[in-house]
Write a protein that binds this DNA or RNA. Structure first.
Length: 246
DNA sequence: AGAATATCTTCGCTTACATCA
DNA sequence: TATGATGTAAGCGAAGATATT
């Protein structure tokens, strides 16, 4: 048996063993003891791995035992017949890639809808239900969260693009309006024509003169700008109000 | 109590493989 | 059949949280 790689299983502090399929005899049982990389000192428990039940060169059953002085922990893990090997039939080190079945993907999707993260118990249960290793379920959820995040980022990006376009249009419109008003003012001098307040509410970044609107009268007169007009609602989004921000 | 260390979990990035046009 | 694009399972390291010494 070739012990190609041992990798720390982040979930349950076991060894995640990737076993080569170079065993010669089908249905052979092999036992090997490996040092547990979690423990550095020599008196710490070792791990005994028993691999058995081979069929057509595929590992069907792995039994792992961690023997400690008083507390024998025994665990059995049924390994999918689709276990990944990192050694090809011709002996080359080609990494085989597992494809989940439709049923497996469907069930994973369903449980992702319920909760996007799994606790160890849920992970174990799901793995058992799907005949996958807990690590595989964990990886699937990690990748699924990443895909969700990426999709959301794309949606946000599209939204911001649209906002930008809207604000650019609004800015252009306001500049044009300002020019027209200036022209009108010049042509109609000395005639004074008060402008509607709303027309003058140009944000400071578009026009350094603009943005001030008198509200109320007498001593209650209050100077406000377009930026002080935002409601207190936590859902207020200045991008939804093109006149409020640029 | 606080520091050092170990362990667990998640994330981001990357790689390698499978599939399809 | 070969090839490039795309989707995705899995590897790897970093970071943060928590437990233990």
């Amino acid at each position: 048996m070739a012990l190609i790689n041992n990798n720390q299983d982040s979930n349950n502090s076991h060894l995640h063993l990737v076993l080569g399929l170079s065993l010669t005899t089908p249905n052979e049982t092999t036992t090997t003891t490996v040092a547990n990389p979690y423990y550095s000192s020599s008196n710490e428990p070792s791990l005994t791995v028993t691999v058995s039940s081979f069929s057509n060169g595929r590992i069907l059953h792995v039994k792992r035992e961690r023997d400690e002085d008083e507390d024998i922990v025994e665990e059995e893990e049924r390994v999918s017949s689709r276990i990944i090997s990192d050694e090809d039939e011709d002996g080359t080190n080609a990494r085989k890639k597992l494809r989940l079945t439709k049923e497996q993907s469907l069930l994973l999707e369903e449980s992702f809808k319920l909760h996007s993260t799994l606790n160890p118990k849920q992970k174990q249960a799901l793995a058992k239900q799907l005949s996958l290793r807990p690590r595989q379920v964990e990886v699937w959820f990690q990748n699924r969260r990443a895909r969700t995040k990426l999709k959301q980022t794309e949606v946000d990006c599209e939204f911001l693009k649209k906002c930008c376009e809207t604000l650019t249009d609004e800015n252009r419109r306001l500049k044009k309006e300002l020019q027209e008003l200036k022209a009108l003012k010049l042509s109609s001098q000395p005639l004074y024509m008060p402008m509607p307040a709303a027309t003058l509410s140009i944000c400071p970044s578009c026009d350094r003169l603009g943005g001030r609107v008198a509200e109320g009268g007498g001593s209650n007169k209050k100077i406000i700008t377009a930026f002080t007009m935002a409601p207190n609602s936590p859902f207020y989004n200045p991008f939804n109000n093109p006149s409020a921000a640029c």
